[in-house]
Design a binder for these strands. Structure first.
Ligand code: ZN
Ligand code: ZN
Ligand code: ZN
Ligand code: ZN
Lengths: 130, 130
DNA sequence: CGCCTTGTTGATAATGATTGTCAATCCGGT
DNA sequence: ACCGGATTGACAATCATTATCAACAAGGCG
């Protein structure tokens, strides 16, 4: 049976405050700074569950797992600023079809895919130029 | 100045023997089994360099870095069996353009992308069914 | 060929993220 | 309020990767 705890809700809320992907460590640190007594292991566990539920998105970077609150129930991808982490959810209609097709062409079944676009956001590009 | 060592060549060769992505740990273990006295740190260092050179491809999975020999000088992506690791290099022409476009639409510059397709290869699918 | 400079190696320690442990705690149905 | 089991959290344990640093060896030179 699944229970409702203030910890789960606290993680959900803290995650929602960030536009960018964050690590479990970073999220835990931020929550602590804001006075929450939540434990590190709980943050790890909760984020993993949220990702399973589809409530959060997971991104692997440099062997680190980064999470982000995402609009549930929708399949989408991300455009991420590699400098500041600013992230935008994007549709990838042409890619969905392409992925299915290329898998089928090679006799692969149950296809899934990982698609992320990185770049410099307008603000970071301006700052780098200035 | 860059020197030629038997270690570098040994890693290149061992990497080429595998159709699938392998971890530094796994590659080192395999090399040792085959009698090579190469050190673990060297395998890590060499794989990282090969990836920089574009001689090897890098894939992040479960917070693990996996490497694979790749045809140098070509931009391509991978279709990977999530059961046995069998990997096929694939072209993604439509995706290249799409990625550039979606980045531009949101004011992002210097776009790059991560695109991988996973699935069950024919052999693994058959084995799962039988 | 032998010497020297310096990039490279490898055993080991150190780091850092993540997971396991397990008793104490808390949720929620009765 | 009571009970059973899910959840928590401090801490230890694990796992991949990186840093150290003394010993080694590649290759240019005389
Ligand atoms: Zn930015
Ligand atoms: Zn998609
Ligand atoms: Zn397979
Ligand atoms: Zn591409």
């Amino acid at each position: 049976m699944k229970r409702n705890t203030w910890q789960r809700e606290a993680v959900r809320e803290a995650l929602g405050e960030s536009e960018a992907f964050v690590s479990a460590q970073a999220l835990h640190a931020r929550m602590r700074e804001e006075g929450s007594p939540i434990g590190l292991a709980t943050v790890y566990r909760t984020l993993a569950k949220l990702a399973e539920d589809g409530t959060a998105d997971l991104l692997q970077q440099d062997g680190e797992q980064l999470y982000r609150a995402c609009t549930p129930g929708t399949h989408h991808h991300h455009l991420i600023c590699r400098r500041c982490g600013l992230t935008v959810e994007i549709e990838a209609k042409p890619v969905e079809a392409w992925a299915r097709q290329v898998a089928a062409e090679h006799g692969f079944t149950e296809p899934s895919h990982v698609v992320d676009v990185f770049g410099l956001c307008a603000e970071c590009a301006a700052r780098a130029a200035g």
